[in-house]
Computed example of a mutant assay.
Amino acid sequence: MPTARIVYASMTGNDEEIAGIVAEELEKYGYTVDTTEVSQAMAEDFQDADICVTATYTYSDGDEGVLPDEAMDFYDDLKATDLTGKVFGCCGSGDHFYDDFATSVDDFAKAFSETGATKGAENVKIDLAPEADDIKALEKFSADLVAKAQSLDA
């Protein structure tokens, strides 16, 4: 049975909800999904999954968007992890009030690109909590991840 691992960082609950939506979608495609909060996760855990997903918020320090403090060690470890043959996707929340909207999503995508993993879907950035259009975007994100994983297996 194919597997997926989702690691999320969530201060307000928005990214935990985003991770839950992606998990439900991947389960519809027959994936066994393990969802873990980032402070409880290890980057090498992604080596045991076919699809690897991060869902994270962007913290603003006033001038620029930065990774959440609790995700820093995971982020650094991720860049040094070999994920060749895995498919990844990045999603998360931000707030359009800030100039650097959801930049942590892009930061994680860059980190994954250093692992040898294959990008399976376009990044999804959600303003605050997911609404109907965002859920559709997450459904497409999940479908794209599955399609890319299946194409690599073919």
Rank of each mutant, 00 (worst) to 15 (best):
A9Q: 05
T103W: 01
E139Y: 06
A49I: 13
E122R: 15
Q47Y: 04
D127R: 12
G89Q: 07
G116N: 05
E64N: 11
V87L: 11
Y57K: 10
V105L: 08
I135H: 01
K110Q: 03
L78F: 01
V66Y: 00
D69A: 12
L67C: 06
D100Y: 11
D107Q: 12
A121N: 12
D100T: 12
T36W: 03
N14T: 11
Y57I: 05
A111S: 13
E131Y: 01
S93I: 04
D106E: 11
E64Y: 04
V105S: 02
L138H: 09
A129N: 09
F74H: 00
D34N: 14
P68D: 10
S60R: 14
G20V: 04
F108W: 08
L26K: 06
D45W: 06
L26D: 00
H96S: 01
C52K: 10
E64V: 11
Q47M: 14
E16W: 04
M72T: 12
A137P: 04
E64M: 10
S104Y: 05
E17D: 06
D127V: 06
D127K: 08
I51S: 04
E139M: 07
G94F: 01
P68E: 13
A111V: 10
I18V: 11
I126V: 14
K136G: 00
G120S: 08
N123M: 07
D95M: 13
D48T: 15
G62V: 08
A137Q: 15
